[in-house]
Design a protein around this nucleic acid. Structure first.
Lengths: 134, 134
DNA sequence: ACCTGTACGCACTTTTTGGTAAGCTCCTTT
DNA sequence: AAAGGAGCTTACCAAAAAGTGCGTACAGGT
């Protein structure tokens, strides 16, 4: 048995003050919260949700707006977030395909939490030099 | 020149309503905001910041608290976030090494934005089955 | 007749991320 | 005398994420 799996099997001393209740969830792996957390807080996920917070957008508009996203990543991100119930896909079966993406209600909630976060990032990004990777 | 780099070189139609001012930053790659954003919103980064929102913790306490993190990832995450000015490292040169980690002022601000986000995640994680990866 | 735009899916390769295990220093415990 | 713990670092390797390019169907423009 690897060392850190062993470490996980030990009891985590339940800390709870601000993180009341969900501390035992998020800090433990195997919890679905971890999966959703990585979906909404990864690079492309955040950016797509943010872009859609403005309103409904088509595939090509998203593609242009989120700078640097590849078509594959856009497709994957959209499908993942759709499965998570964060965004809604609305396809009209017209002949040049017309597909619209928008936030669901919970997606809108989420975007309202994400926006101040990105604002914080925008403010503090200039403070230090961020040259080194990883 | 690859296709989507070419796409990036085209002008992004500056959209600004809720995202006033920083829209041109975050949505464009090559911007330091992107780097910081990925630092604070990746899996381990979020979890470490959250853990430290409770207060100062030692290496070994963090290691036990954040379930599943390897020593390498803990070290890497801590060094990155320290360079970003989010956490502070305080090492006493005593003989069994004693090192404490805490949030800086901006790190505390950040954690206050992260907590509602994680609460949202905790609430919505149970709604759908999150079986599929990526 | 030919090319472009739309919204993808698929296969392949590259890059990044993360895990495992080992080592290290200096001291305390057994 | 040997083992172990604190707080890391490094080398090596596997897995996952992401990028690249190709194909597709059909319509409209030139």
């Amino acid at each position: 048995m690897p060392l850190n799996q062993l470490r996980n099997s030990l009891a985590v001393p339940a800390t709870d003050s601000v993180l009341e209740g969900f501390a035992d969830n998020v800090f433990a792996e195997q919890c679905p919260s971890r999966t959703l957390l990585t979906h909404v807080t990864n690079k492309w996920g955040t950016l797509v949700i943010l872009a859609l917070s403005e309103g409904t957008l088509r595939w090509s508009e998203l593609s242009r707006m989120v700078g640097g996203i590849s078509e594959k990543m856009l497709a994957q991100t959209l499908r993942t977030l759709e499965a998570d119930g964060v965004i809604r896909r609305d396809a009209r079966p017209v002949v040049p395909p017309f597909v619209e993406y928008s936030l669901t209600d919970s997606g809108t909630e989420l975007s309202r939490l994400l926006i101040p976060l990105v604002q914080w990032v925008a403010v503090h990004a200039s403070e230090n030099a961020q040259q080194q990777g990883s």
